[in-house]
Amino acid sequence: MHIAPSTFGGAIEPAMHIPDGFMSPAVSIILWIAAIAGVGYALWRVNRELDERKMPLMGVLAAAIFAGQMLNFAVTGGTSGHLMGAALATILLGPWASIVVMTAVVSIQALLFQDGGLLALGANLVNMALVGSFVSYAVYRIMQRLVGTRRWGALVSGFVAAWLSIVAAALFVGLQLALSGTSPASLALPAMGGIHLLIGLGEGLITVGALALIAATRPDLLGATGGARGGSNRGVVLAGLAIALLLAVISPIASGNPDGLEWVAEQLNFLDAAQDPAYNLVPDYVFPGVANEKAATIAAGVLGVLIVFGVALFSGRLGRRKDAVG
């Protein structure tokens, strides 16, 4: 039995649940407002779209996701992969119910296990419940259009959706820490993004395993469309895409231009006066080459996305042929 009580305490996911003390009050409160608006809207949609069995369903599945986060597998050298669950919940329940389920998971973790702070709960809800579900849903839908909705397509789409949901949430954490002046954007964004490009692979693999098992034993839960139910949610796809694009454009700019985010923070009066960094409006160390370098970073990012989509598309086509033969 390798399970210790400390496993529940939060040391397993050090980077995702922001504790109190790391974010400036202004950033925390703005994110609380965003979280209340987003979760409130999701509750309204769930009330409208799901029948009365929604409450037991969402309550028990929130417990299942919480317990599912206990499951882990050894990767190497003492590190282990484990589940966040936003993508799995989104694919099986649709984006709105997933937001409610993840809200329950993240809130209980903060309130009872200090896995994430109370003042920081707004930020954690935005990152894990809202961004996690929106990005999962948008990526899953778009991938399905590319690789098809059969079993193979659902698995490939689920992998990419779970992977990117983790990366997007991690980049949001990095942005929030940078806006709070806790960690410079030039370090926080590449570090959070880079580490979670790897950690997200674990999320993707577990999600695929779970989807494969569910497709084999209860295919009705995935439905005719291969999961992510909830009818027409074009708005969610657009929101998720907008989040992804925002991150793809902001991250290289912010991390390539370390003072950029701090400058924004300074203008919005987020940083404490005591820190007083005397940043210039137009820094005189901007060379023409820097702008190109930034453009190159963005281009590399776009190229990377295209390559991932290409590989996914190719393996999806391959799988579809296999489905047709088998």
Binding site: A63, A64, V75, I206, G209, I214
Partner: peptide, 26 residues
């Protein structure tokens, strides 16, 4: 590692299914 991840994924899937079916009974 891939195999271990797959097994963990199956575990997560069956946990989810058991939760789902329990919620129907509840």
């Amino acid at each position: 590692v891939l195999w271990r991840a797959k097994v963990t994924g199956y575990m997560a899937g069956s946990l989810f299914l058991r939760g789902y079916e329990r919620s129907e009974r509840i």
